[in-house]
Simulated scan of single mutants.
Amino acid sequence: MIRRRSSSSTADDTLVKVPVPGASEEVPDGGRAGGKGRPTPKRAEAEKQRRQAVRPPKDRKEAVRLQRERARQERQQRVEALRRGDERALPARDKGPVRRFVRDWVDSRWNLAELFLPVAVVVVVLSFVPVTAIQAASIYVMFLMFIGIILDAFITSVRLRRILPERFPDEQRKGAVAYAVLRALQLRRLRLPAPQVQRGTKV
C-alpha cells in the first residue's frame, strides 16, 4: 500500500506569525513601537499649520481676517528683525555700512537731543499750573532746551562730516548726517533699529 504525502508539507517550511494578546511586538532596529507611520507631534503641528495656510477662505469676511492676520505677523517679524538689527530686514533708509556706522556712533554717546521729548512733556504739564512764575520758568527751560538741541545737532553734523569721508571714501554718504540728527532726537530705548552698542563704546 502506497502512502501519499500531503501536499501541505511544503507549507510547513513557512511560519505564519499569529499575534498573541499581551505579547510584546518586535520592533525593527531604529524604529519605535507604535510610532511607525505616525508623524511626530512637531511634524503634525507643522502639517496642520500648512493645511490652514493653504486652505481657501470660506467667504470674504474670512479672507479679510486671514489677510489682516498675515499682515500682523509680517509687521511683527519686521519689528523683531529691526530690534535685532538684521541687515536683511532693514528698510532702504537703514541699510548699508554708512548707516550702520552712524547708528552705532549716535548710540555710543550721550545726546542732549534725546531729552527733548521728556522735557517737552514736563513743560506742557507745568504750563497748566496756575502759577505765573512756574509757567514762565517752563517756557524758559524749553527755550534753553531748544538752544542746546541746536548746538548738539551742529556738533554732530560737524564731527560726522569730518569722520564719514575718512571712514567711507567710496560709499554713498548722502543723507547720513540728517539720519544721525533724527536718530539722536529719539529716546534710546525707542530707536529702531535697536542700538547694538553700549554708551561709551569706541566706534
Rank of each mutant, 00 (worst) to 15 (best):
E45S: 12
R50S: 13
P130G: 01
A46H: 06
V121N: 08
P57H: 00
T201I: 01
G37Y: 01
R161M: 15
R75V: 13
T10A: 11
L15K: 11
A63C: 09
F143R: 08
V129C: 05
A23R: 07
V106E: 03
P39S: 05
A137T: 11
V64W: 00
R70Y: 04
V27W: 02
V123Y: 00
A176C: 12
R4S: 14
L126Q: 13
I155D: 15
E45C: 08
L187P: 11
Q52W: 04
A153T: 14
R38M: 10
A194R: 01
I134C: 06
R183F: 03
S7G: 14
E26P: 15
R43L: 13
R38V: 15
G30F: 02
G175S: 06
R43W: 00
A133Q: 07
R4H: 13
Q186D: 03
K17C: 08
L182A: 10
A46Q: 10
K58H: 12
A71Y: 01
V122A: 14
A137I: 09
I134P: 06
A184R: 00
P193E: 00
K95G: 12
E25Q: 06
T14K: 03
A33R: 10
T201D: 12
I2T: 14
F116V: 07
S108W: 00
K17M: 11
T10H: 05
G37K: 00
R84G: 10
I147M: 09
I147G: 13
A176G: 12
R159M: 12
F168I: 09
A153Q: 14
P193M: 03
G34A: 04
L164I: 10
R60H: 13
T10V: 09
R100L: 10
R93I: 15
A81K: 02
T10Y: 03
E47D: 09
A81Q: 06
P39W: 00
E69T: 14
A176R: 02
A194M: 03
A153I: 13
L66C: 03
V131D: 05
G96L: 05
T201E: 10
A23F: 09
V158I: 15
A180V: 08
S138P: 04
R32Q: 14
L164W: 06
S24H: 07
L115H: 11
R65V: 08
D104K: 04
R191Q: 10
S9H: 00
R55S: 15
R191L: 07
F116S: 15
D86G: 09
G85Y: 01
P41Q: 00
D59Y: 07
R161V: 15
R159L: 14
P118K: 01
S157L: 04
R60F: 11
F116P: 03
A23V: 14
E45L: 15
I2E: 06
I147R: 08
A92Q: 10
S24D: 13
M1L: 08
R75N: 08
A71P: 03
V54Q: 03
P21L: 07
D107M: 06
D29E: 13
E171P: 07
V121T: 14
